[in-house]
Simulated scan of single mutants.
Amino acid sequence: MVAATTAGMFLVCFESLCPCFRSKRKDGSEDHVLAEHSNSLNSSEMRSISDRIPGSPLRVPASPSRFSLSSSPPSRNEPLNLSLEHVVKLTNNFAPALMVGEGYFGKVYRVTLRDGRVVAIKRAKKNLVQLLGCIDKANERILITEYVSNGTLREHLDGQHGLILGFNQRLEIAIDVAHGLTYLHLYAEKPIIHRDVKSSNILLTEGFMAKVSDFGFARTGPTEPGQSQIQTDVRGTAGYVDPEYLRTNYLTIKSDVFSYGILLLEILSGRRPIEARRGPTERITVRWAFNKYQRGNVRDILDPMLTEAVNEDILNKIFDVAFQCVAPTREDRPSMKEVVERLWKIRRDYTKIQRIIELTL
Rank of each mutant, 00 (worst) to 15 (best):
R330T: 10
V60R: 07
S75T: 15
S70G: 15
G101Q: 06
V88W: 02
N39I: 13
T252Y: 01
K198H: 02
T329F: 02
E102H: 09
I192L: 02
P74K: 04
S48F: 07
E102K: 15
Y187F: 09
N77L: 13
W344Y: 07
R355F: 04
Y293H: 05
L184Q: 06
V111H: 02
G116Q: 08
M305S: 14
V118D: 07
N127V: 08
N39C: 13
L359C: 10
G180N: 04
K26L: 14
R247G: 08
A289D: 08
V177M: 00
S56V: 10
E341S: 14
C13K: 12
T329W: 00
I144L: 03
R170P: 14
N316D: 09
T252M: 04
D313T: 15
K24M: 12
L90I: 11
G180F: 00
G103W: 01
T6F: 14
V177P: 12
I164A: 08
E308I: 09
V148L: 00
R114M: 09
G239K: 01
D176V: 07
I175C: 05
G106Q: 02
T232K: 11
F10D: 08
R117P: 11
L98M: 14
V326N: 00
A138K: 10
L268M: 04
T307G: 09
M336P: 12
G162N: 02
E358Q: 14
E30S: 15
N39P: 07
N201G: 07
V60Y: 03
S255L: 07
K125E: 07
R283L: 04
P328M: 06
G162P: 11
T285D: 01
M99L: 06
G28Q: 06
R342V: 13
H37E: 09
K126E: 05
R283K: 13
G8M: 12
G279D: 13
L203A: 03
K190D: 07
I144P: 11
R66G: 10
A218M: 05
P64K: 03
P61G: 09
L157E: 00
S65I: 09
R299E: 10
I192G: 03
N249H: 12
A289R: 04
L343M: 09
V286K: 02
G28P: 15
Y245M: 02
I253Q: 12
R123F: 05
S29G: 10
V286W: 00
S44V: 15
L58W: 10
G270F: 00
P19C: 08
D27A: 10
N168Y: 13
L265C: 06
S40F: 13
